[in-house]
């Protein structure tokens, strides 16, 4: 466990990324009005399919979602240690198998990948089969919903869309907002 309690204010660290510093530090867009959907992830489907398919059917391809807790029959996640290859500051670890897992809370962002296909970026706190409480980047295509539906609150992102694009500063592809959209 890498944590310390101090009385002195810790000095934040500024890391050096491999690419050129981008002077634009915040990329943002807004929808005129919030549009929400209550979604149930159905038993036996993957977290990826349970999010992507029902939302696509109602025209939502960019969204921010909150996974409100539930059991998965199987789940894999990654953590983010420093990149040993030094291509980026960090790189995801190999998948860690958590087994029969309770997802305590998760956030998943839906957008489009570099190839235009749906992409889900999910982080969550979980209780693994061994009973440990862990957190990390969830591999949504390998997480299978358990016997009970899992509720999700969806906030649709209209009037703009999220697309994965190569980010020269960090040297990895990242989801970023773009003005044009097919949502709705």
């Amino acid at each position: 466990m890498k944590r310390v309690v101090t009385t002195a204010i810790p000095r934040p660290r500024t890391l050096i990324h491999p690419g050129r510093f981008n002077p634009v530090r915040i990329q943002s867009h807004h929808s005129t009005k919030g549009r929400h959907v209550r979604l149930a992830l159905l038993p036996g489907v993957s977290l990826f399919d349970g999010l992507v398919k029902p939302l696509a059917e109602i025209g939502i391809t960019s969204a921010s979602t909150t996974i409100l807790g539930g059991y998965f029959g199987g789940l894999q996640y990654c953590v983010a240690p420093p990149d040993q290859q030094r291509q980026a500051v960090i790189a995801y670890s190999k998948p860690i198998t958590a087994g029969h897992t309770y997802m305590i809370f998760g956030n998943a962002t839906l957008g489009k990948g570099m190839n235009g296909a749906p992409l889900v970026h999910c982080h969550a706190a979980i209780r693994t089969e061994s009973g440990d409480v862990k957190g990390g980047h969830i591999l949504t295509d390998t997480c299978i919903v358990g016997r009970d539906p899992i509720p999700v609150l969806v906030t649709s992102l209209d009037e703009f869309e999220l697309r994965q694009a190569y980010d020269p500063e960090t040297n990895i592809p990242l989801l970023q907002p773009y003005k044009e959209t097919t949502n709705g």
Partner: peptide
Amino acid sequence: TVDGKYLQILGPAVEIVS
């Protein structure tokens, strides 16, 4: 922390999961 101290979790990276 409740007593005004700082709990520092060392990375990189520290993932925000909630």
